[in-house]
Amino acid sequence: MATSDDAAKARALSSPLRLRILRLCLHQARTNKEIAELLGINPASCLHHVRTLAGTGFLEAQPERRGTRGAREVPYIATRRSWGQRVDDVAPILIETFVQETAALPPEDIEVWRLGLKLNAEHRAEMMDKLRAVVEEYHAMPSDPDGAATSLMIAHHRDPSAD
């Protein structure tokens, strides 16, 4: 049975905008103003989303700093806790997030594979387990200090037209 805490966490992750905020803060702490500028949204609206993510443990405030004009700024870093959080009916949210994140990228910055297969339940489960194991292995590794930030989305769906 899901707790109210689990429900709040699932709601926090049910927004493509919030998922994009987490991605922006994954490798670098950013202030609300920086996040709003990168996303092209109003800072007040952004603050609502940042506070939701911080309140559910997906963003963590870092030590406050002074901005260029002396204003108090609080940078936030992603805690990486979203990876294991269950969210019902998340596929459309993840797909929309992927579309938004890649919309302005040049084609050479996106590598996409698409393959149709016909597998029985055992082979499908085996393939998905292997893919998950590879992703988990890289997720567990520390970030490469000289690495480039990258994102991966794996989607599997049944194709009823091929039955």
Rank of each mutant, 00 (worst) to 15 (best):
109 D>S: 09
108 E>T: 04
90 V>N: 13
155 A>I: 12
93 I>W: 03
147 G>D: 06
117 L>E: 07
50 V>K: 03
137 E>R: 15
142 P>Y: 06
117 L>K: 05
130 K>A: 11
62 Q>K: 01
67 G>D: 08
34 E>P: 00
71 A>S: 04
65 R>E: 11
9 K>V: 06
121 A>N: 15
85 Q>D: 01
71 A>M: 07
21 I>E: 04
162 A>S: 10
109 D>R: 15
107 P>C: 00
61 A>H: 01
47 L>S: 04
76 Y>A: 02
129 D>I: 01
129 D>A: 15
108 E>R: 12
162 A>H: 14
36 A>H: 09
150 T>N: 15
68 T>E: 00
163 D>K: 10
43 P>H: 03
102 T>S: 12
159 D>F: 09
78 A>W: 00
113 W>F: 13
17 L>Y: 12
91 A>S: 15
52 T>W: 08
158 R>V: 09
56 T>A: 08
83 W>D: 05
1 M>R: 14
138 Y>Q: 13
29 A>L: 01
101 E>D: 13
54 A>I: 01
18 R>K: 10
150 T>R: 13
122 E>D: 12
133 A>N: 07
26 L>C: 09
82 S>C: 03
160 P>A: 03
136 E>L: 02
2 A>G: 01
72 R>T: 13
46 C>W: 00
64 E>D: 07
154 I>M: 15
37 E>Y: 02
112 V>A: 11
97 T>K: 09
65 R>T: 12
117 L>N: 09
28 Q>I: 07
98 F>V: 06
48 H>W: 08
88 D>V: 02
53 L>Q: 05
105 L>F: 09
15 S>M: 10
23 R>D: 15
161 S>N: 12
92 P>S: 09
13 L>K: 06
24 L>F: 00
52 T>C: 03
163 D>I: 14
43 P>F: 05
23 R>Y: 14
111 E>Y: 11
126 E>D: 13
51 R>A: 04
104 A>F: 03
123 H>D: 10
8 A>Y: 04
53 L>C: 09
17 L>G: 07
135 V>R: 12
36 A>I: 08
117 L>Q: 09
126 E>H: 12
69 R>E: 06
70 G>H: 07
159 D>I: 08
3 T>M: 01
101 E>R: 05
151 S>F: 14
22 L>R: 10
76 Y>W: 11
80 R>C: 04
35 I>T: 01
80 R>I: 07
126 E>L: 13
151 S>G: 07
47 L>G: 00
68 T>F: 09
15 S>H: 05
59 L>K: 05
75 P>R: 07
84 G>H: 15
132 R>M: 14
107 P>I: 00
129 D>H: 15
142 P>T: 00
136 E>F: 03
72 R>Q: 01
2 A>S: 12
87 V>D: 10
64 E>R: 11
99 V>S: 06
45 S>Y: 08
77 I>K: 11
144 D>Q: 08
20 R>W: 08
107 P>T: 08
135 V>N: 04
68 T>Q: 11
150 T>V: 06
69 R>V: 02
